[in-house]
């Protein structure tokens, strides 16, 4: 668990973008940028994922899908909104079918700017997200430790009685 940040698994979903950002996300995985050298793996299964990379301004039909994917991911998790549309709806903001940004549906930790976002920016975003992921993991293990100790103390108190 301590090395989660050394090999985060990424889930990518396109929530109504122009797919410009999506192909840049995929470009990160291929030889020129090759994020796999940092241990980052792209997975198709939300239950395997630590990081949700999500693009686009979210439309009505995507809203439940985005929520569902987010809820299926185990804690700790981080969400990265890639591109201008994911941040605010971008150029599509005024379209009748656009909710306007990922944060209208699920909490977002890191915003990557750009239209389309460049692979270098996306990698920077992921690195930033990893420190947030690590903080969350520490807090969770800390909380688990506190609970464990409380349970232990209670058990000891019970024995001595």
């Amino acid at each position: 668990m301590a090395f989660l940040k050394r090999s985060p698994w990424i889930l990518h979903y396109d929530a109504s973008s122009c797919n410009g950002c999506d192909i840049e996300v995929l470009a990160c995985l291929t030889p020129l940028y090759d994020v796999e050298r940092f241990g980052i793996i792209n997975t198709g299964n939300p239950k395997h994922a630590d990081v949700l990379l999500i693009t686009g301004g979210v439309n009505e039909q995507n809203r439940p899908v985005v929520k569902n994917l987010y809820e299926q991911m185990p804690e700790p998790k981080v969400v990265i909104a890639v591109g201008a549309c994911a941040a605010t709806g971008g150029i599509f903001r005024e379209c009748y079918n656009i909710v306007g940004g990922i944060d209208k549906v699920i909490p977002v930790d890191v915003y990557v700017p750009g239209c389309a976002a460049r692979p270098e920016q996306i990698i920077d975003g992921v690195v930033k997200a990893l420190s947030i992921l690590e903080e969350r993991r520490e807090r969770m293990t800390g909380e688990a430790q506190v609970q464990e100790e409380a349970r232990h103390d209670a058990a000891e108190a019970g024995e001595s009685r």
Partner: peptide
């Protein structure tokens, strides 16, 4: 289908015709 339907066609009524080029570019990133 419909997961990416944004309603771009209607944006012509909100953008002037030279500006709509930017929207047209973003119909698809490829």
């Amino acid at each position: 289908i419909g997961y990416i339907h944004r309603g771009l066609e209607q944006l012509v009524q909100k953008r002037e015709y030279p500006e709509y080029v930017y929207v047209a570019e973003r119909i698809c990133g490829i």
